[in-house]
Write a protein that binds this DNA or RNA. Structure first.
Length: 550
RNA sequence: GUCCCUGUAGCUCAGUUGGAUAGAGCAUUUGCCUUCUAAGCAAAGGGUCGCCUGUUCAAAUCAGGCCAGGGACGCCA
């Protein structure tokens, strides 16, 4: 929140106290302002009069009138008015607005950052794709959203850890190992049978070929058939993880922690977690299996944690994993999952509650499906048969910037239509180019005007309507960042940047920045510097580059 | 069958703890380059916010019930 807004809230609170001393403090405690959609309703608006209407048993308009009697015009407040149902609308002075412009220049790319998170620890776990194949488009979306969210939270003062959970054991990994073995035998010309639940993707052949080229059989002087299943499993996992890591690097996504499920199993933490559940009597035996009483916490049915063959189900290690997350003291524990894990949310939340943790600290975001459109037609995808579009292919085809931008473009829980042709287009239709172009255009003007230095003394000259509008848009940047952080929705920032770029392009067409009028030029250069700062700052938070030239 | 998500302009989507005459981009139509990047700008048309009932000063937003689309419902992961 910027200083102007804080000042206004204080002014309102005091005015309310003076006007209606009888009301409870709570009624005005969590007061916040909104930005009216329409300019004529001012720059900030409060609905406090309507909200107090019931308690005071008075008409909102009368309450509003009573409040504004105690709000004085100042350097900041140019005007304050009461509107129809009972809104109190504030009109900010140009002087105050220009003050923010000075802040933006002074703070540079730090403008908009805050201490909202109070240096508390936040963990965000995302992608966490099983190492059984390359990253797909769906993972790409999770990667883009997760990484951007991490950047935004960090900008808001959180101490953020990005984590990738590697599912490196279990039935799927065994199937992977067997698939590789079969392909390897095939290549070296020995008899083999492809497993029923195997991975048919062509990438298995590539790994098999690589294994053959490494001369493994010659080196160890063993026959192919004597190589163990575990050997193939480890080799395949390692190879695929290195591909995944590389794809993520190419996408500009770095993880702080790679957490291996195998290590979790070895640590004994799973047994520990089960023991606690058992002690709290949330476990019971039925049909030779051990069940977790998740229905006690709102789940549809109880869940098996130990199968009758003694092995764990998928959820069991995950319970221990989440227990550890809570133990590490994260203020926010954020998971980004695919839609196939939807039914899984209540299960894991139940487990966290059963262990005695506050489920409000656990945020599970479901990144909805991505449908790729090529030439206006959706592309078919089937992971099972190895027919899918990989993240690497998307990056290759449309570039990192466009890919990241498009993945973030919609609300996380909305289905996303990804139009490949549009993302690739270097035209006005493409929103990522639209924003980057504004940045490049400003850079170009600044270069053109290199003789003119920005000068903060003449900012009062920025009195054209479009200039004031543009600055006011800049003023709201910190509020947008905060909203994106609180709602865990990076797309909110993206939408703002589109607006800002639009205001700039419009301004650019209406007025010349560089003219013979030196003081005016100096002031306008300051303005475009500020716009450039925020475009660069916002794009960076999305993980998209802000080019100087296009 | 149970649960979850979605339903807003021709298309893709916004709509901030409920707020003022429901917005943007694309598409369509019409204008703007001797001047800082036309990869741009200006203007116009386009709506039963899926349907019904309720809650209140106020409902696209909240509650309940329908309708339609998608997804999840394993001792798989």
């Amino acid at each position: 929140m910027i200083k102007i807004e804080i000042d206004l809230i204080i002014a309102i609170k005091e005015a309310v106290k003076k006007a209606f001393s009888e009301i409870s403090i709570n009624a005005v405690e969590d007061l916040s302002l909104e930005v009216p959609k329409e300019k004529r309703f001012g720059d900030f608006s409060s609905n406090i009069a309507m909200r107090l209407s019931r308690e005071l048993r008075k008409a909102p308009l009368d309450i509003a009138a009573g409040i504004i009697k105690h709000i004085e015009k100042s350097d900041i407040i140019q005007d304050v008015k009461v509107e129809k149902p009972g809104f109190i609308n504030f009109y900010i002075s140009n002087k105050a607005v220009i003050g923010v412009l000075e802040d933006i220049i002074e703070e540079g790319v730090e403008f908009g950052s805050s201490s909202l998170g109070k240096s508390k620890k936040a963990q965000i776990e995302f992608v966490s794709a099983n190492p059984t194949g390359p990253l797909t488009v769906a993972h790409g979306r999770q990667a883009a959203i997760g990484d951007s969210l991490a950047r935004i939270l960090k900008f808001c003062g959180y101490n953020v850890i990005k984590e990738y959970y590697i599912n490196d054991e279990g039935v799927q990994i065994q199937a992977l190992g067997k698939s590789l073995k079969a392909r390897f035998m095939e290549i070296v010309g020995e008899k083999s049978e492809f497993p029923e639940n195997g991975y048919k993707g062509g990438y298995i052949y590539e790994i098999a070929q690589k294994l053959k080229d490494s001369g493994v059989t010659e080196r160890t002087q063993t026959s192919s058939a004597s190589l163990s299943d575990d050997f193939f499993m480890d080799y395949a996992t390692k190879e695929i993880m290195s591909t995944i890591t590389k794809d993520l690097e190419d996408f500009g996504v770095h993880f702080d922690v790679w957490y291996s499920q195998k290590s979790l199993t070895k640590s004994g933490k799973i047994e520990k977690a089960l023991e606690i559940l058992k002690d709290k009597e949330f476990l019971y035996q039925k049909d030779g299996a051990t069940w977790f009483r998740s229905t006690d916490f709102g789940d549809d049915k109880d869940r098996v944690v130990i199968k009758n063959d003694g092995s764990y189900t998928y959820v069991t290690p995950d319970i221990a994993y989440h227990k550890e997350k809570f133990e590490k003291g994260y203020e926010k524990i954020i998971n980004i999952w695919g839609p196939d894990h939807h039914g899984y949310i209540s299960r894991i939340k139940a487990a966290c509650q059963a262990l005695g943790y506050d489920k409000e600290r656990l945020f599970i975001l479901i990144a909805q499906l991505v449908t790729l459109y090529r030439e206006g037609k959706p592309t078919k995808m089937s992971t099972r048969e190895g027919e899918f579009v990989t993240l690497a292919e998307i990056i290759d085809e449309v570039g990192r910037d466009a890919a990241r931008f498009f993945f973030i473009m919609r609300r996380t829980e909305s289905h996303l239509d990804f139009d490949l042709a549009l993302a690739k287009a270097k035209t006005l239709d493409n929103p990522v180019y639209y924003i980057q172009y504004a940045h490049a255009r400003i850079s170009s003007i600044i270069e053109f005007s290199e003789n003119t230095k920005p000068n903060l003394d003449n900012l009062a000259l920025l009195d054209k309507q479009q200039e004031v509008d543009l600055i006011k848009t800049l003023v709201h940047y910190p509020k947008i960042i905060e909203a994106a952080a609180v709602n865990l929705e990076p797309y909110m920032l993206l939408a703002y940047l589109q607006d800002l770029a639009g205001f700039f392009h419009s301004y650019y067409n209406a007025y010349r920045i560089v003219t013979d009028d030196k003081p005016l030029t100096e002031a306008r250069i300051v303005l475009i510097h500020a716009v450039k700062n925020i475009l660069a700052s916002g794009l960076n938070l999305l993980g998209v580059s802000a080019p100087e030239k296009m």
